[in-house]
Design a binder for these strands. Structure first.
Length: 268
DNA sequence: AACACGACCTGGTAGC
DNA sequence: TGCTACCAGGTCGTGT
């Protein structure tokens, strides 16, 4: 499940292969993967150069040159999306959804078994709209405590759902939300505006700490294929196991139709 | 405006 | 062995 660290590691892996290459063609093998656009709309990227790559929350932006009409390609991996560059012609995986043909007979492949990911061609309006609904990056200098405190004070959402939203703080998903709340000892069901200042401070430290740890793990995974999980989870996916801090049994509950893992004893 | 909730999508697996 | 039911979860559109 790609969240901020996995996307960041992916970008670092493919950046040098994509930068300064030209798009020669596009094949959309599953129209829904470019929705709400049509496969034909993707053709506006043909002939352009990929100038740079940027991560925006969980989105990957490929900035194009010349930056006229269509400025960027936006890719969201959804649950099961992956990206890689390979030489043509060779067999493409079963879940292949979009293929960009690059110079040098190389193919830039978007693979996505479950089809929840998206690839879109963005004009200026589309790019502006996207940036507007993606909040601050928790690994950037802009992620100061006051920003978290202000946003938290304005929302009555349960802490878990507040962190999952991409509009205030971007890039955190189900796994790292669980870990950050555990580290800060916050009950995931507690309304975020009723969490103490002390615990909000702990959360402000826990979020980047968790993400940096996971990023290290994700970079390692790419170097050494076959090694698995990004990091050791304290609570995520560990229903019934002991809390590493207090020894109580970790619980799994449902919030907004999604599973939440937490320690009922030391997260209050 | 803020929030809740179902739909989308398919592979893996638990249970019978 | 073969079948069914359920689970994984990010985002978007719709309804309150």
């Amino acid at each position: 499940m790609p969240e901020l660290p996995e996307i960041e590691a992916l970008i670092r892996r493919i950046r040098s292969e994509l930068t300064d290459t030209r798009i020669r063609g596009v094949q959309v093998t599953r129209p829904r993967s470019v929705a709400p656009q049509s496969p034909a709309a993707m053709e506006a990227t043909i002939g352009k150069k990929i100038a740079s790559l940027e991560r925006l929350g969980k989105n990957l932006l490929l900035h194009l040159a010349p930056a006229k009409e269509v400025l960027a390609i936006r890719i969201h991996l959804g649950m099961t999306g992956d990206l890689f560059v390979q030489q043509a012609p060779s067999e493409l995986p079963k879940g292949t959804r979009v293929v960009f043909e690059l110079t040098g007979k190389r193919l830039f492949v978007f693979e996505d078994v479950r089809g929840l990911g998206r690839v879109n061609a963005l004009d200026q309006a589309g790019l502006t709209k996207l940036r507007k609904r993606i909040g601050v990056d928790p690994l950037s200098r802009a992620f100061i405590f006051e920003l978290l405190a202000t946003a938290a004070g304005r929302s009555r959402k349960p802490a878990k759902l507040f962190l999952m939203g991409q509009d205030r703080i971007a890039g955190i998903g189900n796994m790292y939300t669980a870990e950050a709340l555990w580290r800060a000892r916050i009950d995931p069901r507690k309304p975020i505006n009723s969490v103490s200042k002390q615990k909000l401070k702990a959360l402000h430290e826990a979020i980047p700490a968790v993400l940096r740890e996971a990023l290290k793990g994700a970079l390692r995974t790419y170097e050494k294929p076959g090694s698995h999980d990004s990091m050791n989870f304290a609570v995520y996916g560990r229903k019934g196991e002991r809390c590493p801090r207090c020894g109580a049994a970790i619980q799994r509950i449902e919030q907004a139709g999604r599973s939440t893992y937490y320690c009922p004893r030391c997260q209050q």
